[in-house]
């Protein structure tokens, strides 16, 4: 069963082609790493998958239904959750409200207002924070937390939101290697436990090989290769990252 199917997807920003006729499918439960040099179109692809920018041409079926038919954010939030680099939490709110923000799609306006004063679904928030190991920081202000902790709060929010697909746009780009591995390990573990699908863009090939079952490489808006992790060789990678300017010398 394919949860994401895209066919001939393209997107242009002005005269710059970000993505040109991409096609691939993602099965339920797969963990896919998107790699490729800067400007290859990884972020654009993830934004299209998240439904935050519309593609120019092509078809994108999410769980068998065209993305345009998802009428509101609420419906989409059930299917897709997003985690980006840090700075994606509201810094002025305590961690618990940032975690409970994952429920905003389900809650009505008054319940979400009330929750700012008397947190609703406190148990769910506590469970999620427990799983990312931050239960003791539940009431701390988010801006006072470190980068790694903020990413864990963001993961707790995804746990509360509980979408079927998680899209991650370079979630570890601003962390040091130890913290980055910690976050990746936790995220892939949680995704496996929840039987979710994960698509993550990454700069590190090493991490992609270590934590993902499939690697999709983009270059200049096209698929350079799309292989199960074990089939990837050194030649694939040197081709992907080679610079045109250098090869002339």
């Amino acid at each position: 069963m394919h949860i994401v199917e895209i066919n001939n997807l393209s997107k242009q920003f002005g005269r710059k082609i970000a993505i040109s006729s991409l096609s691939f499918d993602i099965k339920k439960g797969e963990t896919v790493a998107l790699i490729g040099p800067s400007g290859a179109g990884k972020s654009t692809l993830l934004n299209i998958l998240a439904g935050s920018i519309p593609p120019d041409t092509g078809i994108y079926l999410l769980d068998g239904k065209p993305i345009q038919q998802y009428k509101n954010r609420r419906e989409l939030a059930n299917k897709i959750g997003v985690i980006r680099q840090q700075f994606d939490l509201v810094p002025a709110l305590p961690a618990i409200h940032n975690v409970l923000a994952g429920r905003l799609g389900e809650w009505g306006f008054f319940k979400s207002m009330l929750s700012l004063f008397v947190p609703q679904d406190k148990q769910a928030a506590a469970n999620a924070l427990q799983r990312v190991g931050l239960l003791d920081k539940m009431h701390d202000q988010t801006s006072r937390m470190s980068g790694g902790e903020q990413q864990r709060v963001a993961m707790a929010r995804l746990l509360v939101q509980n979408p079927e697909v998680i899209l991650a746009d370079e979630p570890v780009a601003s962390l040091d290697p130890a913290r980055a591995e910690d976050i990746l390990e936790m995220l892939t573990k949680l995704v496996a436990e929840e039987k979710q699908t994960l698509v993550m863009s990454l700069h590190s090939v090493e991490y992609a090989k270590k934590y993902f079952s499939r690697i999709v490489a983009l270059r200049d808006g096209e698929i350079f290769f799309d292989l199960p992790t074990e089939d990837i060789t050194k030649e694939h990678l040197t081709g992907l990252y080679s610079l045109k300017e250098l090869s002339q010398e």
């Binding site: 989409l76 389900e106 979400s112 963001a154 929010r157």
Partner: peptide, 18 residues
């Protein structure tokens, strides 16, 4: 952060307050 609240399914009024 606002963009992320939107992708968590928050409505405009919820975005305003959160």
């Amino acid at each position: 952060p606002i963009r992320n609240l939107a992708s968590a399914g928050a409505s405009n009024a919820q975005i305003l307050f959160y």
